Computed example of a mutant assay.
Amino acid sequence: MNEPAVTAAALVELHDTLLSQATWPQTEPSPALAPDNVWHWISANHRFNSLLWAEEDLARRTRVSDSDIATNKRAIDGFNQARNDATERVDELLLIELGLVDATSARTDAPVSMAPATARLNSETAGAMMDRLSIMALKVHAMRAQCLRTDVDAEHIASSRIKLDRLLTQRTDLAACLDALLRDCRTGQAYFKVYRQFKMYNDARFNPALVAEQRCAS
Rank of each mutant, 00 (worst) to 15 (best):
V6W: 03
T7Q: 04
T7G: 06
L14W: 00
H15N: 13
D16S: 11
S20T: 08
A22P: 00
T27L: 11
P29H: 05
P31S: 04
P35C: 04
V38N: 00
W39K: 00
A44N: 10
N45M: 15
H46V: 04
S50E: 00
E55I: 01
A59T: 14
R61W: 13
T62D: 13
R63K: 15
V64M: 05
D66K: 12
D68P: 01
D77M: 14
G78K: 11
G78I: 13
Q81A: 15
Q81L: 15
A82D: 11
A82Q: 12
R89S: 08
V90C: 08
E92Y: 01
E92A: 09
L94E: 05
L94F: 01
E97L: 03
D102C: 05
T104H: 08
S105N: 05
A106S: 11
A110M: 06
V112K: 07
S113W: 01
M114R: 11
A115E: 01
A115P: 00
A117N: 08
S123C: 10
A126P: 00
A128G: 10
M130P: 00
L133V: 08
S134I: 09
M136N: 14
L138Q: 09
R149Y: 06
V152H: 03
D153H: 01
H156K: 08
R161M: 12
R166H: 08
L167T: 01
R171W: 03
T172Q: 14
L181F: 06
R183W: 04
R183L: 11
C185I: 03
R186T: 14
F192E: 02
Q197G: 14
D203S: 05
N207W: 06
A209K: 05
Q214V: 07
S218E: 10
